[in-house]
Amino acid sequence: MKFGILVNEGPYQHQASDSAYQFARAALEKGHEVTRVFFYHDGVYNGTSYSVPPLDDRQVTKQWSELAKEHDVDLVLCVAACQRRGMMDDGEAERHGKGANNVAEGFRISGLGQLIETGIQSDRLVTFGD
């Protein structure tokens, strides 16, 4: 079965991203497909490469990056949410005259249409938030 996942909250403040990650891992282990994880609202902060949590804490962004690499999961940060919150890839940074790319490996910035597309193309869409 194809699962799509929506994450509405940033890392550490809420458990949403942790729950979504555990769900994705469990789904993949059971042989399901996780086609895309869409990060919306403060959820886009899950994709920041500038996060340096204490070493004895879980590395939320790194966990997602590794999951994407291992299982070819598409991690999408909503562009409108990113623009409000200061998340930029090279293209966005250049377009808006801002500093550097702060999108972590395995994540990409794209439009809200990707969320609708996930709803259309996946068998189930599972939402995690506040």
């Binding site: 555990q22 769900f23 469990a26 068998d123 599972v126 939402t127």
Partner: peptide, 15 residues
């Protein structure tokens, strides 16, 4: 457990 969560999501028609 989380695997059971996945099963429930699959068994029902929507979440």
């Amino acid at each position: 457990d989380y695997a059971g969560f996945v099963d429930l999501a699959a068994e029902n028609d929507a979440v």
